[in-house]
């Protein structure tokens, strides 16, 4: 059974928990994964998102999330205007993604220093989301927990080294997911934790020889 504030709550900007509140969280997640101010956003919308995004303000909601607004921020309705003012160039394109959840968005962001992020995620109801792909890696990320993401070489022992660091800081792992594109090449690991992740931990993970990059996605 879920909790009291899942039923009387959340506080949110309407009109739809899945088409608006969940869409803000998808944008927010994309922005966090990019990790810097976005200057360009290309967004593909599938299914019900593609059909009803204007009426539900899904476009405003996703852009609001990219700008870092939370689902209860009253600036969401003005997000498209605010994006222009912030120098964020955006576009929306309806697409057909075979077999995808009806409320799926693919968000491609370019940051101010040229970093890019491409995430694919769905708004799965009640404002909850599920990110299924980050930069080409298959993942399962809900944003309900603080997460540590590592990009590393697909070699034996890397996972142990990273989890040893977490263990030293007494951080409990709630969920863990490892994926790669090809054996021995680059792999991605997502570790969802019960507690907030200190920056020291992330820095130590970056020091692991095979780890190319490690970053922290806070719970949203």
């Amino acid at each position: 059974m879920r909790g009291v504030f899942d039923i009387v709550g959340p506080v949110m900007i309407g009109p739809s928990s899945s088409h608006t509140a969940g869409a803000v969280r998808l944008g927010l997640m994309a922005g966090k994964i990019l990790g810097e101010k976005a200057v360009k956003a290309e967004i593909n919308l599938h299914g019900s998102f593609a059909q009803t995004y204007r009426g539900h303000g899904t476009d405003k909601a996703i852009i609001a999330g990219v700008l870092g607004f939370l689902p209860d921020d009253e600036r969401i309705r003005d997000a498209l205007i605010l994006a222009k003012r912030e120098g964020l160039d955006y576009s929306f394109q309806p697409v057909n993604l075979d077999g995808a959840h009806p409320n799926t968005a693919v968000i491609y962001l370019i940051g101010v220093t040229g970093r890019v992020a491409r995430i694919r995620g769905a708004s799965i109801g009640g404002g909850n989301i599920l990110i299924s792909n980050i930069n080409g890696y298959e993942v399962e990320l809900t944003g309900q927990y603080p997460a540590l993401i590592t990009i590393h070489r697909d070699k034996p022992g890397v996972i142990t080294q990273v989890t040893n660091i977490l263990s030293r800081y007494e951080m409990n792992i709630a969920f863990m997911h490892v994926s790669r594109q090809n054996r021995g090449e680059t792999a991605m690991m997502i570790i969802e934790l019960d507690d907030v992740l200190p920056e020291d931990v992330v820095e130590e993970c970056r020091q692991v020889y095979e780890v190319e990059n490690a970053f922290h996605i806070p719970a949203i």
Partner: peptide
Amino acid sequence: EVNAVMGKIVACPTAGSC
């Protein structure tokens, strides 16, 4: 109506029945 104009509401239990 506030929900429909992208105003702030409390889902209870959902936005459609808030």
